[in-house]
Amino acid sequence: MRTSTGYLIQSLPGEVLAEVRRTGRDASGQPPQRRTAEGGEPLRCCLRDAGAGEPLLLFGYAPPLPAGPYREVGPVFAHDGDCPGPDHGPGYPAGWRGRPQVLRAYDRRGRIVGGRLHDGDEPEAVITELLADPAVDRLHSRNVVYGCFMFAVTRR
């Protein structure tokens, strides 16, 4: 998703979700779990919270990083059926404003080179500040409590 601020906010790639559905296996080789949303589960395919009753998949995902010791697999929720992707327009996911997040900064080798906890207010300022460091290649937004990957941020 393009923004006017010099970076891209990237949801779970559709091809990754299609592969999980096609093969019935996640990044760890395990079958995804089918769930019915209780409501509030953060959907990585469309960058919004699920509504109660939506059919979901819960599966292990390896966020975009080069192979190395900082690459990890963690749980993510996505729609169990077709999803058109984010519909909130360019920029930070509107429904996630005000939600505390951790932004982890990675270099081109995929090593952590910094990060920042933010309260969810004015996330663009935090993203811009972290990307101002030339050593930073990308950011991962992470859930504060569970540490789960939420979305990636890369330079345009």
Rank of each mutant, 00 (worst) to 15 (best):
E41A: 12
G95Q: 07
E122C: 08
N143L: 03
R111P: 00
L57V: 03
R138M: 08
H79W: 04
P84F: 01
H79Y: 04
E15Q: 13
C46G: 11
P13D: 07
E122M: 06
Y92G: 07
A52V: 08
Y92L: 07
E54R: 08
V20D: 01
G74P: 01
A78D: 05
P69A: 14
V102F: 13
L8A: 11
W96M: 12
A135F: 04
Q33R: 15
G95K: 01
G24T: 04
A94Y: 01
I127T: 09
I112K: 13
R116L: 14
C148M: 01
L130N: 05
R111E: 13
G91C: 10
H88A: 08
Y70F: 15
R44N: 10
Q30W: 10
V20E: 00
L117R: 15
L56F: 07
R44Y: 04
L139I: 07
Q30M: 14
P32S: 02
L139Q: 05
D82F: 15
L57T: 01
P123W: 02
S28A: 13
C45Y: 06
P123K: 00
V153W: 02
D26W: 10
T36E: 15
S4C: 00
G81T: 08
L139F: 10
C46A: 10
P93Q: 01
A94G: 15
R99L: 09
V136L: 08
Y146W: 06
A27Y: 11
P84V: 01
V73C: 11
H79K: 04
A105C: 09
H140T: 12
G81F: 01
Q101A: 13
L58M: 14
R99V: 15
G14D: 11
H140D: 12
G95L: 03
G120R: 09
P75E: 13
I112S: 14
P63H: 01
R97F: 12
D26N: 08
R35K: 15
S141W: 00
R44V: 13
L58C: 09
G24Q: 03
E15W: 14
A135G: 11
R2K: 15
R109S: 13
G89E: 08
Y146C: 01
C45H: 06
P86F: 02
P134N: 00
P66D: 03
G114K: 09
P93L: 02
V136S: 05
C46S: 14
R111W: 09
P32N: 01
A132L: 04
I9C: 07
L43P: 11
G40N: 08
G6I: 05
L131R: 05
T154G: 08
L58Q: 12
H79A: 13
C83H: 03
D121Y: 10
Q30K: 14
T154S: 11
T5G: 06
D26T: 08
L131T: 07
A78R: 02
P134G: 00
G115M: 09
G147R: 08
P90C: 03
W96Y: 12
P55H: 00
P86V: 02
D119A: 12
R97E: 14
D137L: 05
G91Q: 06
R155F: 08
E129W: 05
C83N: 06
L8F: 09
R35T: 03
G147M: 06
G68T: 05
